[in-house]
Structures are given as C-alpha cells and as structure tokens.
Amino acid sequence: MRDLFTIALIWSTVRLATPLILAALGGLFSERSGIINIALEGKMLAGAFTAAAVTYAADSKLHLGAASPWIGLLAGMSAGIFIAAIYAIVCIRYKADQVVSGTAINILMIGVPGFLSGALFLSSGSTPQIPKEQLIPWAPIIIAFAMVPITWYVLYRTPFGLRLRSVGENPEAADAAGVSVSRIRYSGVLIAGALAGMGGAYLSIGQSSLFTRNMTSGRGFIALAALIFGKWRPVQTLLACLLFGFTEAVSIQMQGAIKLPAFFATLLRQTPGDDIPVQFIQMVPYLLTIIVLAGFIGSSRPPRALGIPYQKEK
C-alpha cells in the first residue's frame, strides 16, 4: 500500500480534482442561493469547447502567442456565464422546473459543440490540436485552490454571502428584509457559470490540448456529487473533490498496482491477484454520494429553498 502514495499520484490527484473544485464551488454559489445546478455538466462542456476553439484561433489565426490561452480561459468562462444566463432566465424569470431545464442544458451542450465544430473545423466534434506552448496547465489549479478560502470568506464574512445564504434558506424572510431574491439568485447562477466554465476550460486547454466530444464525461455530475458530499460547505467540498480526484487518479495510474484480495476474487469469480476492475473504482464517488445523502455519514441537508421558484407576494 505504501507505494500508492507517490508524488506522481498526489500530483495527478490535484490535477484531476481541479476541474471538480472549480465546478463544485460554482455549484455551491448557485445551490446556496436556492437554484439546483444539474446543468454544471453543460456549463463545463460549453467552457471546454469555447476555450479550446478560441485558444486555437487566437494562436494560429491571430498569432497572439502567449496571450492566447488566457484569452481562451476568459472565453471559456464567458461561455459558462452565457449558458448560465439562459438557465437563470428560464429558472428565475420564467420559474421553470430547475432539474428539467438543467437536463435540457446538458443535452443542448452535448449537441452544440459538435454542431459548431462540424462547421468551424470540418471535424465531427473535436477542435484542432493546440501546440503545447499555448496551454495553461498551472493557472487554473492555483485559481481553483485559491477559490476555496475566497468562497468561504464571501459566503460567511460578507453581506453578499449572508444574503445568498438567506435567499437559499428562507426567501420570504430575505424578501421582507429588503433583499432582492431574484437578483441574488441571478448572481449565484452566473458565478456558477463562470467557475464551471473555467473548470471545463482547464480540461481542454490545461489537462489536454483539444476539445473532444462530451469530454467532461460526467465530471459535472461528480462535482455535483462532491458538493452534496461536502454538505454545501466550501472546505468540505474541497476535501470531497480531492477524494473523488484521488479515486480517479487511482483508477488511471494504479492499474495493476493494487491486486484484488482473495475474498473479492472468489466473490467475483476472478483469479486472486488480478487487477481491481477499473469499473469498481469508478463507482466510488457515486456510491459515497448515495450513502451520505441517505444520512449514513452524518446528515447532509440541502438549503431549505433549493429548487423552489420564488413567487413574490403581490
């Protein structure tokens, strides 16, 4: 077991946790204001595609050199904000069901990048390779980890944070106290868009060097799971993201390093000493989320007004 905790594994955990941290903290702002964020996945996809497309264009067409990934990162965040704005208008202004419209955004964002890249790059769903020098492997990691204390401070030490939490817990009372429920909720959802967009951008122009079809492959949902596992609190959410990043790192790096214990091997009708099937490691975050949500590991209580459109009394 000792050779499990190598520097390489820790580094890989940090890298894999970064998009989760960004998206989960984004989701935290949105959910703490009372808006469910099933659409994290779609926002990440929007960010990943836009960042890759813009970085590629800035580098190869406009020859902006070292500035291109930064422009790409900003573009990815803007794409996240744009998608979040659609989601916010539908959910807040038109009081649509948040889960249903979030699902719509996710389906839409599986289609739109492919649709656009088919026309822009004459490819089916991926953007061209970006040269290694024009990637941004460090900045998003630093931003992600810095965002944890910032989120904590904003949430618990600023008037905005107080309003955000009160709108998510008891919008009637917040409204009576003169807080604009919809304005706070709009800000929460838009911040989520920016952070999830950055998380997606990191996937395409940080970890990888191009956008591929559905490249988030469920990371938006893992981020959502981490948020629930972290009980909607910044520091716990960070720990949950690191844990889920670690399980992913293990499933990638430790292929063959951990052997299947004899008991499980018999149970699974496999030979003892086989590798642990990668599928079982992949399941861990989802199983943990179900267990924690059922209240087996302390209680995980969502914000009270989560998912309920606010109807102002006339």
Partner: peptide
C-alpha cells in the same frame, strides 16, 4: 455540407427548454 447529426441534440435540448419555460 456543415450540419452534423448533433442538430438532433440541439433541437431536443431547445424543445425541453421551451417546454420547461412554459410561462415564456
């Protein structure tokens, strides 16, 4: 020339969005 089958996902997503935002 340019349209891919991703059009289907796009149409699907927009339909749900419109149905969900019935008040619109």
């Amino acid at each position: 020339n340019n349209v891919t089958k991703d059009l289907v996902d796009v149409l699907q997503g927009v339909v749900i969005l419109f149905v969900a935002a019935e008040a619109l």
